[in-house]
């Protein structure tokens, strides 16, 4: 049975070293090796790896530019950063050994490696970073006054709308973190259950499904972040200027 909490492998002082932390470190190493390799071999005539990276970077940059042309330079690093990090974390969690190689302590089985995104700490951290970065970018893009006007107004109707907006900011964090956490944990649980029923061939369809989930969840998280950033970095009164007089009342 998969627990909600990650298993502690050992303690370093007060810090518990969990199996998800080990996975994150492996992912970090993979990303750093990738960055090093890319940075070292960067040339005007690209090789296979550089070509692939350029294709992804160019595609993501174009997508960001089409959604938020003015803030593309600020939003893009977060967009692709979340995607790369979550996708590599998800996809490496499907490698053999995850959840299967471990230590048995009496009745309890502790896997050495576990999908990092099935640890709420990871997804919550990512969601918090996404939210905080979104609000910092928003303040920088529209100014503190316009930023606060989104949530607080003297008009009671818009004050209520502002409060709803505040609640929605909280739900954004919850939805981002729990969506990723739930999907990966559920996938992990399905794979473990199916594998325990019959370890050969039977998990293959579920495995391919999980590969799709790995990609889709990474895309969902990063695209949502990008969209939230794009919405909040757009000046609040802008749509009202050419639609209704609502903006003027709101101001």
């Amino acid at each position: 049975m998969i627990s909600l909490k990650p298993e502690v492998l050992f303690q370093i002082g007060p810090v518990p070293f969990t199996n998800t932390l080990l996975h994150i470190l492996i992912v970090d190493v993979l990303i750093l090796v990738g960055i090093y390799f890319l940075h070292k071999n960067l040339s005007k005539i690209p090789g296979l790896f550089q070509n692939m990276v350029e294709y992804v970077v160019d595609g993501f940059y174009g997508l960001t530019e089409s959604i938020s042309p003015t803030q593309v330079k600020a939003i893009f690093p977060f967009f692709i950063g979340f995607f790369v990090f979550i996708f590599i974390t998800n996809i490496t969690a499907l490698f053999p050994g995850f959840g299967t190689i471990g230590i048995r302590k009496g009745e309890e089985f502790i896997p050495i490696l576990r999908a990092a995104n099935s640890d709420f700490n990871v997804t919550f951290a990512l969601a918090i970073i996404s939210a905080v970065a979104t609000h910092i970018l928003a303040v920088r893009a529209v100014g503190i006054k316009d930023y606060l006007l989104r949530y607080f107004s003297l008009n009671p109707i818009f004050l209520f709308v502002g409060l709803l907006e505040l609640v929605s900011e909280l739900t954004k964090i919850i939805s981002l973190s729990f969506r990723l956490f739930g999907n990966i944990l559920a996938g992990d649980a399905v794979l473990t259950t199916v594998s325990s029923m019959f370890a050969f061939f039977l998990p293959l369809p579920f495995m391919s499904l999980e590969i799709i989930v790995a990609l889709v969840q990474a895309l969902v998280f990063s695209i949502l972040t990008m969209v939230f950033m794009s919405i909040l970095t757009t000046p609040h009164h802008e749509p009202a200027e050419h639609s209704t007089k609502g903006g003027e009342i709101h101001e």
């Binding site: 627990s3 909490k5 932390l21 640890d119 919550f124 951290a125 956490f181």
Partner: peptide, 12 residues
Amino acid sequence: FGFEPVLFAAQV
């Protein structure tokens, strides 16, 4: 859900 402030900070 397994929230641990230290681990959370480490992840951030």
